[in-house]
Simulated assay, not measured.
Amino acid sequence: MSEALTYENAYRELQEIAEEIEMETVSVDLLAEKVKRAALLISFCQQKLRATETEVNNIIRQMDTGK
């Protein structure tokens, strides 16, 4: 069973990909695949952060109007 993608999992995988590329342990044959995966993970993380920011702002706004 595959693990559900969470922000933490995506970020961890991004770190691993970056490390592999920096250490030059990724073969040329796999490099494009790794970069595509990294782009997908970055997009996922950005969406999660935006959604969280919106939710937090809504909660703060509700707290301010409830005073």
Results as ranks from 00 to 15, higher is better:
35 V>C: 01
55 E>Y: 07
51 A>Y: 07
51 A>F: 06
31 L>R: 13
13 E>M: 07
16 E>Q: 10
49 L>K: 12
65 T>Y: 08
30 L>F: 06
57 N>D: 15
2 S>D: 14
47 Q>N: 08
53 E>I: 03
22 E>M: 08
43 S>F: 04
54 T>Q: 15
26 V>P: 13
54 T>N: 06
26 V>K: 10
40 L>D: 10
27 S>W: 04
13 E>R: 15
62 Q>N: 15
11 Y>H: 07
48 K>T: 03
58 N>C: 05
46 Q>V: 03
12 R>L: 09
38 A>M: 04
6 T>F: 00
11 Y>R: 03
53 E>P: 03
9 N>T: 05
22 E>R: 11
58 N>H: 10
34 K>H: 08
33 E>Y: 04
53 E>W: 02
55 E>L: 12
62 Q>E: 15
10 A>W: 00
25 T>Y: 08
47 Q>S: 03
57 N>V: 11
61 R>S: 14
13 E>H: 10
37 R>C: 01
55 E>A: 13
64 D>S: 12
23 M>H: 06
37 R>T: 13
16 E>C: 04
19 E>W: 10
32 A>K: 05
16 E>S: 12
31 L>M: 03
63 M>Y: 14
9 N>H: 05
41 L>S: 01
44 F>H: 05
9 N>E: 13
56 V>H: 08
33 E>W: 02
58 N>V: 00
60 I>F: 07
51 A>T: 15
33 E>M: 10
23 M>W: 07
10 A>V: 00
6 T>P: 00
3 E>K: 09
15 Q>C: 14
25 T>M: 13
6 T>M: 01
14 L>E: 04
57 N>W: 05
48 K>W: 02
10 A>E: 05
44 F>Q: 00
65 T>W: 06
5 L>I: 02
8 E>Y: 01
45 C>P: 03
47 Q>G: 07
52 T>S: 14
23 M>G: 07
39 A>H: 09
48 K>H: 06
21 I>G: 02
65 T>M: 13
20 E>P: 04
38 A>G: 02
12 R>Q: 13
48 K>L: 03
34 K>S: 06
53 E>R: 09
12 R>G: 07
67 K>W: 10
62 Q>T: 06
16 E>F: 02
58 N>M: 08
13 E>Q: 15
35 V>Q: 07
30 L>A: 11
27 S>E: 15
50 R>A: 12
38 A>H: 04
60 I>M: 09
40 L>G: 11
20 E>I: 01
18 A>D: 15
28 V>F: 09
13 E>T: 11
48 K>G: 07
14 L>M: 12
38 A>N: 03
21 I>L: 15
39 A>T: 10
43 S>Q: 09
26 V>S: 15
51 A>N: 14
7 Y>V: 00
10 A>Q: 01
61 R>L: 09
12 R>A: 11
15 Q>L: 11
4 A>E: 12
31 L>W: 04
29 D>Q: 15
7 Y>T: 02
38 A>S: 08
55 E>H: 11
5 L>C: 00
31 L>T: 02
5 L>M: 12
28 V>L: 13
46 Q>L: 01
8 E>C: 02
19 E>S: 15
50 R>V: 10
8 E>P: 02
14 L>R: 03
34 K>P: 07
21 I>E: 15
1 M>D: 10
